[in-house]
Amino acid sequence: MELEVRHLRALCAIADAGSLHKAARQLGMSQPSLTTQLRRIENALGGQLFSRERTGCRPTPLGRIVLSRARPLVTEMRALVAETKAAAAGRGEGPRLRIGSTASRAIPGWLRRLRVRLPGTEISLQMDVSANALLRLVAAAQLDVVFVHEVEGSPLRLPESLRRRVLLDREPQFVSLAADHPAAERPVVRLGDLADDRWMVDPTVDGEWDGLRRVLSAAGLNPPVLHGDYLTAASLVATGEVVTLCQPTSRGRADMAVRPLFGDPLGVRLLVAARTEDELNAVYGELEAAYWEAARQSAAYTEWLLRAGDPRGATGGPLVPATR
């Protein structure tokens, strides 16, 4: 069996959806057909690409390697098709901005500001759990700019050809736990308060599992750790099944609390990268404003910033008018 673009697209869909059922629906095919196709792909490559778990499908180590090569190819093919259709329709190619990002609550505000500042520009967004994969896409000119998170102790592999700017040198990582968890009554949670809890982490996020493992080990803890995506984790946190690390811009819910960890044992650095300084300048101000807008919307983060003596907890940081 020779792999085709449609096979790579199917693999990406399964990884993004987290389940065969959802991926099949997105691809417009039946689940049995997609299951059969995946089995043939795995046979052709000689190994299992996804582990079937109760919470869905997760890429295996081999699967992550294949996906890291498949995603750029699928992205490039989509761009080729779009550009070819535009040329065939006689439309000149207008300005475009291809953004990549790891998960962040700043993304909606960033896109909103960019669309106001850059009218007529076609803005696309590609999300990925792997910051390193996004950086490679910028270096290969398949994306223009990326916003990524670098977990403390796990440096990213930044291509030498890229320019970077640090949005925040150290963003503390908080913990999310069920609203009725005893530790949720405290404004700051100690790791020892969670000694009897199961944790959940997404091992496909660059550096995330290593960072959590270091923090737990330093605290003398060795709790059971489940692997899964953070959408699933949120559901399990709400029911008290697990606790998990989260970004400080995360907002609590009626069934889930977000709290800082005592001593801020784990942090991440927030980076923006592009091939030129001009590309960085074109997007950085809007991202900075969007980040602090998201920070203001998190009560736990706002309080943490004020306790740390950071005035951005009250002002939201430097705001850039969307009409600039």
Rank of each mutant, 00 (worst) to 15 (best):
A308D: 14
G317K: 12
A290Y: 01
P311F: 10
A308I: 02
Y291M: 06
P318N: 09
A300I: 09
D310V: 02
S298G: 08
A308Y: 01
G317Y: 09
R307M: 12
Y301I: 03
P311C: 08
L319C: 10
L319N: 10
D310R: 09
A294V: 06
L306H: 04
G313P: 03
A290N: 04
P311S: 10
E293L: 10
E303D: 14
E303R: 09
A300T: 10
E303T: 11
W292N: 00
A308G: 09
S298D: 12
L319Q: 14
S298E: 08
G317S: 09
T315Y: 05
R307H: 15
P311M: 07
Q297F: 01
G316Y: 07
S298R: 01
A308V: 03
G309Y: 00
Q297M: 11
Y301G: 01
A314N: 12
P318K: 12
L319H: 13
S298Q: 06
A294H: 10
E293D: 08
R307I: 12
Y291H: 11
G309C: 02
Y291V: 03
L305D: 02
P311I: 10
E293P: 00
R296L: 13
A299V: 12
E303H: 08
E303N: 10
L305Y: 04
T315D: 15
Y301H: 14
A299I: 06
G316R: 00
A308N: 13
L319E: 10
G309M: 00
Q297Y: 03
G313W: 06
A308M: 13
A300L: 11
W292F: 13
L319I: 11
G316W: 09
P311R: 14
Y291D: 00
P311N: 06
E293K: 12
Y301D: 05
A314K: 07
G317M: 07
R307V: 11
R307L: 15
A314C: 10
L319K: 14
G313F: 05
A300E: 04
Y301N: 00
A308P: 04
Y301A: 07
G317D: 10
A290T: 03
D310Y: 05
Q297K: 14
L306Y: 01
A299R: 13
R312P: 00
G313A: 08
Y301W: 14
R312M: 02
G313R: 14
A314H: 13
S298L: 08
L305T: 03
R296W: 06
W292V: 00
A290K: 01
R312N: 13
P318S: 14
W304D: 01
Y291C: 02
G316K: 01
A314L: 15
T302M: 03
L305K: 14
A290M: 05
R307P: 10
T302R: 15
R307S: 10
L306W: 01
W292R: 00
L306A: 09
L306C: 07
W304G: 01
G317P: 08
G317F: 11
A294T: 08
G309P: 01
G317H: 09
A314R: 15
L306M: 13
A294E: 06
R296I: 05
L319V: 15
L305W: 01
A294W: 07
E293V: 00
R296M: 14
W304F: 15
L305E: 02
L306K: 12
Y291W: 10
G313K: 09
A294R: 09
A314S: 14
A294Q: 13
